[in-house]
Amino acid sequence: MNDSRTSQEGDVENITRVILPNRKKGEIFGIVEKLSGASHLTVMCEDGYTRVTRIPGKMKKRMWIRERDLVIVKPWQFQNEKADIVYRYTHTQANYLSRNNLLPEVINIFK
């Protein structure tokens, strides 16, 4: 599989095989530290904050989240110490991000 494409202008754009956080929407990487029960988790985020996050209803029974999982979180705008889980990476996807230096050093535990 080719990991880069060339457009007509000659610019090279990289194509990744996994979903990345949408920075425009405020999404960031995080590592699950603790399961608190009732769909709540404690997540260490890449910006240095430890946030209490919740698993939304549409993900609750479909995606099981464990400690030390890499996730994408979206902090709440009105309460910065809380957030919602957007996506959970599999172990293979997390290793891929680590190998390609797409993870910040603060939360890169997959070395």
Rank of each mutant, 00 (worst) to 15 (best):
V18T: 14
L97Q: 08
D47E: 12
E81S: 15
S7V: 09
I15G: 00
Y49S: 15
K34Y: 04
R66D: 14
G37F: 06
L70P: 01
V73D: 00
I28W: 01
T53F: 03
N80P: 11
P75W: 00
L35D: 10
K61A: 10
V71L: 15
I107F: 15
Y49R: 15
W76I: 01
S4Y: 15
R17I: 06
S7W: 04
D3W: 13
Y96G: 04
A83G: 08
R17H: 13
W64F: 09
N2E: 14
R99T: 04
D11Q: 13
Y96W: 09
I65M: 03
V12C: 05
M59A: 09
N95L: 14
Q77L: 11
I65Y: 02
I72G: 06
D84E: 15
P104I: 04
N22S: 08
E46R: 03
K74A: 06
C45R: 03
Y87A: 05
S39L: 05
I109G: 02
K111Y: 07
I109F: 07
L20M: 14
D69C: 11
K58M: 09
K25C: 09
E33R: 15
I72D: 06
G30P: 00
P21C: 05
L102Q: 03
E67V: 04
I55D: 01
G30Q: 07
V71M: 08
A38M: 07
R88D: 05
Q93A: 15
R51N: 05
E46C: 07
A83W: 00
V12L: 12
L20V: 00
G48V: 08
E81N: 14
Q79C: 12
R51I: 05
